[in-house]
Design a protein around this nucleic acid. Structure first.
Lengths: 213, 213, 213, 213
DNA sequence: CATGAATGAGAATTCATTCAT
DNA sequence: GATGAATGAATTCTCATTCAT
């Protein structure tokens, strides 16, 4: 029993090491330059070993994203429990989302800015379903946060679903272009200070939802 | 004389065919799976021929994006001349941007959702400079549209630059997630109807900028 | 245990096969016409396999030369131990050098008659350092042989270093032009018999160093 | 008539320009990196034009070498006429040969250190015959210079042909290794100063041929 | 469980050469 | 006489993946 447990623990550990290495390489070299070989090198295992833990490259990346976003969900749920003021809770949540994207640029880009057919994944796979489940639950946090504001009368809108999705689009736009800005470092575009942009964005979103008078 | 002209026309034609083929392959297979070989196959020319028209792969892609976005700029400038009502001009412009992105999904993704270090391009290149110039000019349309609204007293905001950038972020978010939705075709997420989402998004943006009372 | 050994042996064997094939192709087709593909074809392995044994093309060639010249060094050092007469030792050594060059025409040409910038190799590489080390040690044999003759009073010269280098130049000239003669097979030039030329050359070298009276 | 002449002159001129460009590129980039395209670029003609003047790449290079060595022959023949002291004439000739090699490193290497089957050339070709003729005549200068010294009693040797060839081998060795030294710039080998090496070499050659007592 | 060895497929790019004009 | 356009063949090298051990 103890032996089996240790084995399971060790197995889980190696799986994590693989994902960690992938994540690091991702940041350092950019998605298309991450090869299984490089991942294997970094953890000092053979490339073949990775196939014992992940069916293929796309499953690995899919898991990576899934597990990354699980963290975001946890954070948003914590916020939901701890922050009682509904508008503040919403605002902090949106802010967390953006910060999270900036902290995990590659997973963010891979998940939301990379057409899926590039890293195909059969829909039936277990990994895929899990990832998806997490995503839906994460989005639910936003839905609930908006609904709470509406109930409290501090925000006003008709269609909860449409508003949630639109709000997501806005913060996705903020996150996404900030990421572009930092990875490209384009000297020609007169980018406003990051902090400023984020707060201005959140202000505009909330102003767009405030009651009409 | 006529001969030289015909030749030039033919040359231009082949260049277009290459760009077209690239763009199609893009859609069908995703950026990292587009190779010069495949492009050449599709137009039934040899791979080497492409090098007579583009210095290398990154120049080809850069040209592709640059030339595509020149169209957007043209359209926005046309709008600016033709639509006199400032808010309507702004709204139509934002809408055009989104529609344009949806019509050229791959160029859009390549330009705004693809970290540059993946398809690097020396900054000094002529292609690069031109593309950049076009981008800046396109953004200027948005700046002017917002400023006109402010002068007309129909919108209210403090910092023109920050507001322009934030607005861009929002419509980029809309475009970007709509594209994701269509390329992924995720059956599990309860997407609201596209038209609805766009209009809701534009409403929210404008509401976020309306005068305080 | 036995398994690991057999594997190591097999691995070493394939490495040798690659080097052999490279060397042969070299002879048959000339250096710039030796491609990794051709080497792979000849040994009936895939091109990719070669990369498991050599980092890249230049490392392969560098290894080839290095390992070849290690043999020359061994031979010269053996001579040094076995031949006690200093002039004879020198003469036999020079002769060995020439014969060695004639026996390994391609490695010789690659090492001494091929401008390095053609097959560049980072200086830091391990292969490179080793090759270099071997070369220096081989040259040391010549230095010592000359010095021994001087001490014995049978040869006379002022500057050991300059004389060693000049002597090397002479035997290199002999080797090099004999190789040219055999690879070109030029029917128009009235080449004197090889053996004659070599012995005449060695005579002239030794006569040039004999004491003045 | 005048027209035809001008045409012929112009044609000859372009031929020269091609050879010049080839020669320059040679020096700058090394033999295997000289492509017809680069040559054509440099003279601002199309690659196809080169084929109007040279049958193919190897003929071009062959001509290049032939014409370069014609210069050496001219110089040696001039020396023969002007320098009356036989030993001095020999020594100056040898020195000229070495200097010439150092001044035309790439042609020298191509001619004498490059196995012919790398740049094949049918023996029957006109270019080939001419080049060969020049080479034989150049070697004749050395033969005559040695013979003159023997007749004057200042040098002593039995076989003129063998001695001439050996002498050539020696100065070829000097030239060849000096060229190696300069193109490789190997920091590990303690090369003696160039001038010193050359003069030491010439001394040794002449000492090797001086009368026995 | 882990891997060393191997590979087929494919990538970007360059080149010498041809030929219709 | 000169060339613009085109190409087939070749190059080095990387990668995801498999499989016997």
């Amino acid at each position: 029993m103890g032996i089996a447990e240790r084995r399971a623990r060790e197995k889980e550990l190696l799986r994590s090491k693989i994902l960690d290495a992938a994540s690091q390489l991702f940041v350092e070299e950019g998605l298309p330059n991450v090869s299984l070989r490089k991942i294997a090198n970094r953890i000092e295992y053979s490339p073949a070993t990775i196939y014992l833990y992940f069916k293929d490259k796309s499953h690995l990346f899919s898991s990576l994203c899934g597990e990354t976003f699980a963290q975001l969900k946890d954070e948003l749920e914590r916020l939901e429990r701890e922050e009682t003021d509904p508008v503040l809770c919403l605002r902090k949540g949106l802010r967390s989302y953006i910060d999270f994207g900036l902290q995990h640029p590659n997973q963010y880009v891979l998940t939301f800015n990379t057409p899926r057919h590039q890293y195909e994944l059969e829909e039936s796979s277990q990994d895929f379903k899990e990832t998806n489940q997490v995503a839906l639950e994460t989005f639910d946090c936003l839905r609930r946060a908006l609904e709470r504001c509406r109930k409290a009368g501090v925000l006003e809108f008709e269609d909860l679903e449409a508003t949630s999705q639109t709000t997501w689009m806005f913060i996705h736009g903020i996150t996404s272009l900030l990421l572009l800005q930092f990875t490209q470092n384009d000297p020609h575009f007169p980018w406003v200070d990051k902090e400023r942009l984020i707060e201005n964005g959140l202000d505009m979103i909330l102003r767009g939802l405030r009651p009409c008078r």
